[in-house]
Design a protein around this nucleic acid. Structure first.
Length: 468
RNA sequence: GGCGCCGUAGCCAAGUGGUAAGGCACGGGACUGCAAAUCCCUGAACCCCGGUUCGAAUCCGGGCGGCGCCUCCA
């Protein structure tokens, strides 16, 4: 377990040995949700990735401070720079206060994470609760000559930050030719971005604040820089997010931070997860091919089966999602969990020495850029090794669980006797029929219940039934 | 127009130079009155072509196909 953790760093495009700035302590920032609606399972993949990383860091013995932000203001709804704010639009169309919408979807997101066994962050911060810090950061940038004023707002001038293209290896020259979207014409460079947007003349926004530049609201990128430095300091270890964030959002964050704080590199390790593909393309709100955790739960598949599904692919690989692939994962997950349950009470002595090879293989899989699929293969090897005493199997599974977060440490929920009198009576009648070898009648009852979606399992302790 | 990723058995998916992990499904078997659940056994030479090498899924070149980013997006 002492082997070094190797992580792929987007900043250097290499797998690197992870070492924190301060020995033993890690500061990690994860870009959180924009809370104007539900998160889909593709978004959730980013949370699962960050959680896997967090769990492995903890297993490595690091003391971790994990910060996640809630974007509850300032997100534009469409291409270009004059899109409508997503929060404002959601509020306008539903007649609710923006705060109410933000609160509802923040809670929904939090419950999703909980259902997926994502460890809670040490700090969960909201953009609207740190407006002052964002303004202060903007003023710093302004004072250092990195901004200019347009009618729409205060913009960051990327020409003042030569390292702008570094993180995402951007071709800024080629970008000028692209011209695929309408830009704010007056911008000096298409990649310049707003740090503060003005409320439109005569418009009273639900979410707006006074600033030295005028009434308005902060640009999206400002919050992450302001809040991460507030909670993690001017330089920190790890920043995570989806791959799509690197070229724009994260590049902008870097520009703001390095210009305001005079540091480089601002963040040591940039870690990005790939997309979840669905129906041949990435799952995304704009394409409309989204599924939520609620949708999955509605099919009777437990949320943790989705976590298991996630662990079956490497985080830096696009993962193909289909419902049947998820069902397959759910079957494997159910069996794995059942096995963990079965060996938990095993008699006999566990022998740490005997377990060592599996511990070693599991640890090295995760240490190698979080290779969860390989780690899962080790898990199954434990389960399918008859020569390994049950007590050792159990000890190993419990040893793995803190990294996996699959709930292998919890008893499988009892088959919940639902107590439906009619069904109970039918099941009892079937039992009686079986006893008297009236199998035709017995099967008739079973088939009848099957059409209602009820399955009967005959166990040594008698029959059991369940829905689904 | 620029940048990047991927193409492994029916499906999901590891493997980045030395005789191809794992899960699911299928098939066979055990168990069962029959099923279900569970357990055991079982399958693949890696998109195509050329090259490097004693040896390539793994490196290089070309081709075909898919995806992503450069624009709100995880």
């Amino acid at each position: 377990m002492s082997q070094p953790l190797i992580l792929y760093n987007t900043r250097t495009r290499k797998k690197e040995r992870f070492a924190p700035l301060q020995a033993g302590r890690v500061g990690m920032y994860t870009c959180g949700p924009t809370v104007y609606g539900p998160q889909h399972i593709g978004n959730l993949r980013s949370q699962l990735f960050a959680d896997l990383l967090k769990r492995v860091l903890i297993a490595k013995g690091f003391a971790l401070r994990h910060v996640i932000n809630i974007t509850d203001v300032g997100h534009l709804s469409d291409d270009g720079d004059d899109g409508e704010d997503k929060m404002e639009r959601a509020a306008t169309s539903s007649g609710e206060r923006a705060e109410a919408i933000a609160a509802r979807w923040t809670e929904h997101w939090r419950q999703n994470r909980e259902a997926l066994n994502c460890l809670p962050p040490e700090v969960l911060c909201k953009a609207t609760e740190h407006i002052a810090e964002q303004i202060e950061l903007g003023q710093k940038l302004e004072a250092a000559g990195h901004t200019y004023r347009l009618q729409e707002g205060i913009y960051f001038d990327i020409a003042t930050f030569p390292a702008y293209a570094e993180l995402a290896r951007l071709e800024l020259a080629g970008q000028t030719d692209a011209q695929r979207i309408e830009q704010v014409e007056a911008k000096r460079h298409p990649a310049d971005f707003a740090i503060w947007k003005f409320s439109a003349a005569g418009v009273r926004r639900q979410q707006e604040w006074d600033s030295p530049w005028g009434r308005g609201f902060p640009g999206w990128h400002l919050e992450c820089t302001a809040m991460s430095s507030l909670f993690l300091g001017r330089q920190f270890d790890i920043h995570t997010g989806g791959v799509d964030l690197a070229p724009v959002h994260h590049s902008n964050e870097v520009a703001q931070a390095e210009c305001a704080f005079g540091v480089h590199p601002w963040v040591n390790f940039w870690c990005h997860n790939e997309f979840l593909d669905f129906q041949g393309v990435k799952m995304s709100k704009s394409l409309g091919n989204v599924l939520t955790l609620d949708d999955i739960a509605a099919t009777g598949i437990p949320p943790l089966a989705f976590r298991y599904f996630f662990l079956q692919a490497h985080y830096r690989q696009q993962q193909t999602f289909t419902l049947s692939a998820l069902r397959a994962a759910a079957t494997g997950y159910r069996r794995l969990r059942g096995h963990a349950d079965a060996v938990r009470q095993a008699e006999g002595d566990a022998d740490a020495k005997r377990q060592a090879p599996w511990r070693e293989r599991f640890a090295s899989a995760l240490a190698d850029d979080l290779n969860a699929p390989r780690a899962l293969a080790v898990v199954w090897d434990v389960v399918r090794s008859p020569e390994l005493p049950a007590a050792d199997q159990s000890a190993l599974l419990q040893h793995f669980e803190p990294c996996l977060g699959l709930g292998l440490d919890e008893p499988v929920a009892a088959p919940a006797p639902e107590g439906d009198e009619r069904i109970d009576a039918l099941v009892a009648e079937r039992e009686e029929a079986r006893r008297t070898r009236a199998f035709t009648r017995a099967d008739e009852i079973r088939n009848q219940l099957a059409t209602e979606g009820i399955t009967i399992e005959d166990t040594p302790e008698g029959p059991r039934w369940k829905r689904g």
